[in-house]
Write a protein that binds this DNA or RNA. Structure first.
Lengths: 212, 212
DNA sequence: GTCTATACATGGATAGAC
DNA sequence: GTCTATCCATGTATAGAC
């Protein structure tokens, strides 16, 4: 009985701590994704609705907080390859869905901000780009290359290189439209990108099949 | 005669000033392209081999120096569309040369640094991405779209969207390999990218011609 | 024009009361 | 654990001697 009480207290205390931690991380997210690593600790604390000192109770220093946040964000967006259902689709459906999924991320300010910060701070924090490549890019590109390689209707000579081309076209569309404000200066609809990418891939696939 | 002397003096003085200005800009380039806008003024002066005060004789403040530098760098890399000789080539040659030219830029640390800084500081300095899009991206994409639209062997339904896809694939390859250190973590040769991109475009073009 | 020294502001991190 | 007040390093910008 005594021990149960202690356990109970310990749990609620831990929960409270986690809640505070969450508040801090949420505030830090807004600050870092807006100002990059240049965001200052006062702003971060204010955004989180806590005192600055409280931030330092949960995180050793600014760098720890930054790393923890990016790690958590990456976790949230980890693709872990593609679903089995999608991988089972024929090329027209597969590439259409793939493109739509990729382009939907443009609507998430946190995703856009994350990519911006990673590129921006990749010189200062090399492990950032390392994690990004390993956990977000590689699984996506690998799955895509696997699909291309295994589908009998897609007889491309270098699935891995092709996967990078497709992936790159989509990522760069997001960067130029959302991060570089191209949506105002050089607007281009997702539908047109999707349609043209499909045309390109499916036409080429058809020709490759005939040419083999 | 008197006036000639004055003119002479005025010219040499101006030349000296320009030389100092160049030294400062060269130093600032190294600093900014390495540390981003976070580079400090002492480092910049040191890199330029001048006293910090001298920097402030030529530039009002850090922001002016930064803007002047990026402007000058953008000038250097401005494509101003593609050459008439290239535009006259048939697709296989055209796309091969285009790809090689685009990928050669990866070897220029100043170009890579410029792209990184533009993405990094696009939130703080929106006019940066504006200039980049207008002077580097738009001419390239427009020329490419024009070529696709006008070449009778390329019957694609949306040349502008296709131009963005091709351009994006190349730019993102540079970003992931050079800026995000993918050349160590996920290496991929330019030759494979070039070959796959050519295969994709030319196969699709052939099919489009047959399908019309 | 150039250098040394310095004023002033900002921001990361901590001390001490509660 | 939380808040207020503060320390101290850093960095932008300038003043004054040469």
């Amino acid at each position: 009985m005594q021990y149960d009480c202690i356990t109970m207290q310990s749990i609620t205390s831990e929960q409270r701590q986690n809640k505070q931690r969450e508040k801090i991380l949420a505030g830090a997210m807004r600050a870092f994704l807006t100002y990059g690593y240049a965001a200052n600790m006062d702003t971060i604390a204010q955004e989180g609705g806590v005192a600055k000192q409280t931030v330092y109770t949960y995180f050793k220093d600014k760098e720890s907080l930054f790393s923890a946040l990016i790690d958590r964000l990456l976790d949230r967006f980890v693709t872990a390859g593609m679903g089995a259902e999608l991988m089972a689709q024929e090329p027209p459906v597969f590439f259409r869905v793939l493109t739509q999924i990729a382009l939907q991320r443009m609507d998430d300010p946190e995703y856009v901000g994350l990519i911006r910060v990673i590129i921006a701070e990749s010189a200062r924090f090399p492990e950032l780009s390392e994690t990004y490549l390993n956990r977000l890019v590689r699984p996506g590109v690998d799955s895509l290359a696997y699909y291309i390689r295994e589908n009998p209707n897609l007889r491309f000579s270098d699935p891995e290189a092709l996967a990078r081309i497709i992936h790159g076209a989509l990522v760069n569309f997001m960067i130029s439209q959302e991060i570089l404000n191209g949506k105002f200066m050089m607007p281009m609809s997702r539908e047109r990108i999707t349609a043209s990418l499909l045309e390109l891939i499916l036409f080429a696939a058809e020709q490759a099949k005939q040419a083999r």
